[in-house]
Design a protein around this nucleic acid. Structure first.
Length: 554
DNA sequence: GCGATCACG
DNA sequence: ACGTACGTGATCGCT
């Protein structure tokens, strides 16, 4: 059945009678190489480890759960995977696919347990799916792959990268992020006062609220209610539109300073207070749950604990144990570089020759400082035109015409209701039926205006999508290469990836290994560029920090 | 359940 | 000429 496939596939399925069912198949023919064999929960890790050692297969599974939890805790490393649920979503959306496959509910993929007979719900030992279903699903996915060899390669790379991402996510969930719980509690006591029940306002916050009520002549004021606070501010003579921090920051007044102080502390208490520590940190480690496949652009999300929104102010309590260190790396100006590579804009590629792309823009006299450079670039990629960004955007437009044409054309496609896709073929979600309807209906001026607004909104989305989704692909491939190189070096046990946020990865390793690990990460970044864009790829410099305290990285 | 707000990239 | 910054998650008050 397959084309462009070689080697061995190892299907890992649920055994309705026991725990796991494994079968090796030839990737080229799809034919079984071995009869299906069962493995109990106790046997699984050893059986899988032996197959990995002897055959180095690509592991085909519906999703990583529950297999990876077990394998990771036993330090069984899988080099390659094909995660069917993620591949299904990719193929459903990709314009490169030869056939449109049905979508899949990633949270609750179809399983034999659900379709099984009476009592299956109670007797099923694992959440899972039959071997036959997995084999069928894989075959259907292969059928849906494009016949054009170049398109095939891209989509296959995307599926493989997404799948290794799922392995890494499972490994990070198991490893957790080292967290100084005691230091965090001390911080809370210092800022909020003694611990109180969750339903009670912490002492220092309560005192602030009381003072605020007095100072604004609004006794009993609840500053957590934006409406109440806005009315109180108006009564006190502050002509503000909202109570947003950035608006209040414009006003220099002791009462306003107090409001801002209250907001800051209130936020700390509610999002990273004692209850958060109780819920998410155990034995000195934070264990978030990473969610793949749900964000349209292919970025990851996290559910629970808000892992991807860790405030900088709390990072001081993210500390390694004694003798170990973090190696923190981030892709420098990743999105502009991705845009330079995709659009083949010679000038932007020229700018990217410098490790600090923004400095090039400054030296070329296009912008006055780094902040303006960053703002201008983001404005171009997001489609912004407001205020200061407009002038900067215009300067960039003139100097990087090919890059601008590229994102502009993505925006126009979106405005028309067409789809766009990433470099490897991740398709954006289609315009929904209501949107299409609104574009067709021009009953009156108001509905026409609303339709135009919606069209431009979708244009900004597709403009951003082509860059953001390809940046997400680069990051996946970067992580995948790093993981592979670390495994090759024999350091999989002692060097662990512990965090990932879009364009930044954090490893934890023994202090002595950090310089070499840093080199591996840089090398992986260079490989990622070539894997994605070929030998002529633009460069992707990364900045690397070695530190025991996350707050000190960059 | 939804909007406002604010945290991150 | 005109005009709108992109994507997420968590919490809280309000209806």
């Amino acid at each position: 059945m397959p084309r462009g496939q070689s080697g061995v596939l190892a299907f890992l399925a649920a055994d309705p009678e026991g725990f796991a069912l494994l079968q090796l198949r030839d990737a080229a023919s799809g034919e079984p190489l071995t009869p299906a064999r069962t493995a109990s929960r106790e046997e699984l890790c050893q059986v899988v480890g032996e197959i990995e050692q002897s055959r180095s297969p690509r592991w085909v599974m519906l999703r990583t759960s529950p297999w990876l939890e077990l394998l990771t805790s036993a330090d069984v490393h899988l080099a390659k995977a094909h995660v069917l649920s993620l591949a299904q979503r990719l193929l459903h959306r990709s314009p490169l696919a030869a056939v449109r496959l049905p979508d899949i509910d990633l949270e609750n993929p179809p399983s034999s347990r659900d379709t099984g007979g009476q009592g299956a719900l109670f007797s099923a030992p694992v959440s899972g799916e039959s071997l036959q279903e997995l084999v069928n699903m894989f075959a259907a996915q292969l059928q849906a792959m494009p016949s054009d060899p170049a398109a095939f390669k891209r989509l296959q790379l995307l599926i493989h990268a997404e799948s290794v991402g799922a392995l890494i996510a499972a490994e990070m969930e198991s490893a957790g992020l080292s967290w100084d719980e005691h230091g965090h509690r001390q911080l809370l006591r210092r800022m909020l006062g003694e611990r109180v029940p969750d339903s009670v306002r912490p002492p220092k916050l309560a005192a602030l609220a009381q003072q605020l009520g007095q100072n604004l002549q609004s006794p009993g004021l609840n500053p957590d209610s934006p409406q109440e606070l806005l009315r109180a501010l108006h009564r006190a003579g502050f002509a503000v539109q909202s109570v947003r921090a950035w608006e209040l920051e414009q006003i220099a007044h002791p009462a306003i300073t107090q409001v801002l102080e209250y907001k800051k502390l209130s936020r700390l208490a509610s999002t990273h207070g004692d209850a958060w520590l109780d819920a998410w940190v155990a034995h000195g480690r934070f264990h978030p749950h990473y969610v793949l496949g749900t964000v349209a652009s292919g970025r990851w999300a996290a559910s629970g604990g808000g892992a991807l929104q860790l405030p900088h102010s709390i990072r001081q309590v993210v500390r390694t144990p004694e003798g170990r260190t973090f190696v923190v790396a981030d892709g420098r100006q990743l999105e502009p570089r991705i845009l330079a590579a995709m659009s083949r804009d010679r000038n932007l590629q020229q700018a990217g020759l410098q490790d600090d792309l923004y400095q090039w823009l400054i030296d070329a006299g296009l912008v006055k400082d780094r902040n303006e450079a960053k703002l201008g670039m983001l404005s171009v990629i997001y489609g912004g035109t407001s205020g200061g960004a407009q002038a900067v955007g215009a300067a960039l437009k003139k100097n990087f015409p090919a890059a601008m044409d590229f994102v502009d054309s993505a925006a126009r496609a979106g405005e028309r209701g067409d789809g766009v896709s990433s470099y490897l073929g991740r398709g954006c979600p289609p315009a929904d039926e209501r949107w299409m309807q609104a574009q067709r209906g021009t009953r009156d001026e108001a509905s026409q205006r609303a339709a135009d607004l919606a069209a431009r909104s979708r244009g900004r989305f597709t403009r951003n999508f082509v860059v953001q989704s390809t940046a997400a692909e680069w990051a996946l491939i970067w992580m995948g290469h790093a993981r592979h190189l670390i495994h090759q070096a024999g350091w999989s046990q002692e060097c662990r990836q512990v965090f990932f946020v879009h364009d930044e990865i954090v490893f934890e390793c023994p202090t002595g290994l950090a310089p070499q690990l840093a080199e591996i990460i840089r090398h992986a970044a260079a490989l990622a560029g070539r894997t994605l864009f070929g030998e002529q790829s633009v460069s992707f410099p990364v900045s690397v920090a070695i530190t025991q305290n996350y707050a000190e990285a960059k």
